[in-house]
Simulated assay, not measured.
Amino acid sequence: MTERPDQSNLAVVAHARDDLRVEAVPEPAPAADEAVIAIAYGGICGSDLHYWLHGAAGQSILREPMVLGHEVVGTVLAAAADGTGPAAGTPVAVHPATVVDDGVTPWPRDRANLSPRGTYLGSAARLPHTQGAFARRVALPARMLRPLPAGLDLRTAAAVEPASVAWHGVERAGDVRGARALVVGGGPIGLFAVAVLAHHGAAEIAVSDLAAEPLERARRLGAHTVFDARDAEGIAAYAADVVIEASGSVPGLASALSGAIRGGRVVMLGLQRAGEIPVEIATAITRELTLSGSFRFDTEIDDVIAALADGSLAVEPVLTDDYDVADALEAFARASDAAASSKVLLRF
Score class of each variant (00 low, 15 high):
R180M: 08
R180G: 08
R180T: 14
R180Y: 07
R180C: 08
A181W: 07
L182E: 01
L182C: 02
V184I: 15
V184E: 08
G185C: 07
G185I: 08
G186Q: 05
G187L: 08
G187H: 10
G187N: 09
P188H: 02
I189L: 12
I189C: 03
I189P: 03
I189K: 01
L191Q: 05
F192V: 07
F192K: 06
F192I: 06
F192Q: 06
A193Q: 09
A193W: 11
A193N: 10
A195F: 12
A195M: 13
V196I: 14
L197A: 08
A198Q: 13
A198E: 11
H199W: 13
H200I: 03
G201F: 12
G201I: 11
A202L: 08
A203Q: 15
I205C: 09
A206W: 01
A206E: 04
V207C: 07
S208T: 15
S208K: 06
L210H: 06
L210A: 14
A211Q: 09
A211K: 03
A211E: 13
A211R: 03
A211I: 01
E213R: 14
E213W: 07
L215N: 00
L215G: 00
E216L: 12
E216M: 06
E216A: 15
R217G: 12
R217C: 09
R217F: 02
A218M: 08
A218N: 09
R220H: 11
R220L: 14
R220N: 01
G222R: 03
H224C: 02
T225H: 15
V226E: 02
F227P: 01
D228C: 01
D228T: 00
A229K: 03
A229E: 05
A229G: 12
A229L: 06
A229P: 05
D231Y: 00
D231P: 02
A232V: 13
A232H: 15
A232L: 13
A232T: 14
E233G: 15
G234C: 02
G234V: 02
G234H: 03
I235D: 00
I235E: 01
I235P: 00
I235T: 00
A236Y: 10
A236W: 11
A236H: 07
A236K: 13
A237F: 10
A237L: 04
Y238L: 01
Y238M: 02
A239C: 09
A239W: 00
A239P: 01
A239T: 07
A240F: 04
D241K: 03
D241L: 04
D241Y: 07
V242S: 04
V242Y: 11
V243I: 09
V243Y: 09
V243F: 10
V243L: 08
I244S: 05
E245G: 12
A246Q: 12
S247W: 13
S247H: 14
S247N: 13
V250L: 02
V250P: 03
P251N: 06
G252S: 11
G252K: 11
G252T: 12
G252M: 09
L253A: 06
S255Y: 05
A256S: 15
L257Q: 14
G259Q: 11
I261G: 13
R262V: 15
R262A: 15
R262W: 11
G263Q: 13
G263C: 14
G263E: 12
G264H: 05
G264R: 04
G264I: 09
R265T: 15
